[in-house]
Design a protein around this nucleic acid. Structure first.
Lengths: 197, 197, 197, 197
DNA sequence: GATGAATGAGCTTTCATTCAT
DNA sequence: AATGAATGAAAGCTCATTCAT
């Protein structure tokens, strides 16, 4: 018989919680909701995460690490900065389509519930794996002469604000076209915004 | 005796709720909190707004109208598209600094709590005053040959995602400089992204 | 129609809680239990006492004040120390018989649940009205030459430990006779213990 | 290899539980707490004690037997009643200082949680080893003409109520002096209270 | 219009106990 | 004997909303 290991159980909770939180929001999702979705008793949930808040924090770290790794892979590829921008946009939108809960969690849960992520996630602690890879991307681009040397956060805000904004519009079903059909124009806009003139 | 009109009472609630919701979040703010801040009884609150959700929706309309008017003023000015971009960025950041609750409400309450704004705010109903002025800005820019003719939402996502992202970073105290010190570089990035090449 | 004032409501809770806590113990008594006994909803209970712990603390103060007043009356009477001892013993046992919850609360709830009375009741804060009247009694007795001058707490421990112990034995139905039939022998024992030889 | 016998395991639980119950109270101490302190799994705990309540009852018996033996030793000694009183007081305070958990358990757990000790400890069943030795002490004292012949429980209440009260005051850090510095005055008070005039 | 006591459903969390391994 | 994941009932507490006054 295939036993379910403690680690697998935890993963099950992470997956279920990610979906529920991103769909219904942090406060509307209850611990019983999560437990039911994993097929577990409420009491047992607390053997894996000591509180709902802790779970929420672990989820950000999980996503941040996941996205960080994806960007790292792109950073390592021997391609131009313009191509990297395209690759990041494509990767981001692919995730937004295939595992929307990851991006949505970021946008709707992490970015909006200060109270929850206050302690333990001050500043950028919980999203540093992701942010630092974006720094690498930007510094590389500047170094090889493709990108203008500007304050990192101005570039970062453009890049992530833009992508986040688009995913948001898509989520609201406001976009007339499918998300990925915007990849080219968005990549172009970003490149135009950041490149040396 | 100076009587307080029904309309003034409503405004008082709007102001108080805007601050509380944007600071503490929609779910953490209670109706008693709001009533207390206005100096009104809980029961009386319900004479002005039939539910907490309704209040939240009226707040978006309020902000959206407010921002729409500001952009309309800029649209009417006889200045270049590049200057309009600057003006919008400056206006947005000025509000973000002087009345942060307006922008924060948008970012942290409206954009993140689908459940609340579901009924009655489908699609862009509740933010149309604002979005349509941005459309005017964009169409004017294209028409006069300053901006590339692309899908509106791609440009909109860039503009608002970028600005929202920066305000968010500022709110998290992540930005090394004051928000307004980024105005020039951001305006430049946006213009570069959208202009005809 | 006779309206129930806020103060009366609070008294109702005090009375009900005193009975329940003393009969079933602090932890076994639930807030729903208390609310049900007063004929009130759980939610409303919290309009009167912000927590179960706070209620417990107010109860000690209530009892301590009540007992303090009783002893004060006795202290004021123009009788001998020996007669005062008798009067205190009688008063104590009368309460123990007529309003047993008061004494039992003291013995079984206050004295035994440090965790609950920790904050806000350090040392003797919550029982000072009672203790200070016992101090008055003792000092008067010493001053008029009836009682040996010894460390107050040694005398206090004797007096209250003894009375508490007897009420406890009575509560356990261990005593072969009714509590008040011990009044004479107990008063005598106490007087013999404390008087000048 | 030094094997740990079943009996030793049980003793380990008794020791750990005694400390935890007396420090934190019966309800605040959890079975996992106890198991952790013994270095044993929760499941295994139930191989030794079939419930938390049963454990609590065995603890009273344990303490009662222990105290009973101590008093028996004193009873056997060829000393005066007055000296026996002193010896008991000293013995009691020594235990209160060296193994405070025993006395505290008695005062704070056994005496205060009727619900727990209801079944199986009715009346004095669970403390009879101790009480009967106190009876022996008292009867001997009366028989040899040292103590007044009064109802046993009146004398018992004085003795144990007094000692318990003092240990309680000490535990609350209310006593200005160390517990043992009161031994003389307390013994004197008790003797004065009980002796023939 | 104004008050705020009252409701009650529902939330997060705890814990004694069981049981498959 | 030993483990510890699993259960599930129940606790304390909150809060949007109502309604008698």
């Amino acid at each position: 018989m295939a036993r379910i290991s403690k680690e697998e159980r935890k993963e099950g909770i992470v997956t279920a919680a990610l979906k529920l939180f991103s769909e219904k929001g942090f406060y509307v999702t209850t611990v019983p909701d999560i437990a039911a979705k994993v097929g577990m008793s409420v009491g047992n949930f607390y053997n894996y995460f000591t509180s709902k808040d802790i779970l929420a924090k672990e989820l950000v770290m999980f996503i941040s690490t996941y996205l960080g790794e994806k960007i790292q892979e792109i950073n390592k590829e021997p391609i131009s900065t313009q191509e990297k921008i395209s690759a990041i946009v494509t990767m981001y939108f692919t995730i937004a389509v295939e595992r929307p809960e990851m991006i949505e969690y970021f946008l709707r849960v992490y970015l909006s519930n200060r109270e929850v992520f206050g302690e333990g996630c001050e500043g950028m602690i919980c999203i540093s794996p992701f942010v630092s890879e974006m720094m690498v991307f930007f510094n590389d681009g500047v170094e090889c002469g493709d990108l203008r040397n500007q304050e990192f956060f101005s570039a970062f805000g453009l890049f992530m604000g833009y992508l986040g904004g688009m995913v948001f519009l898509a989520g609201e079903k406001i976009l007339p076209e499918a998300l990925n059909s915007y990849e080219a124009s968005i990549s172009e806009n970003i490149y135009n915004a950041l490149r040396v003139n």
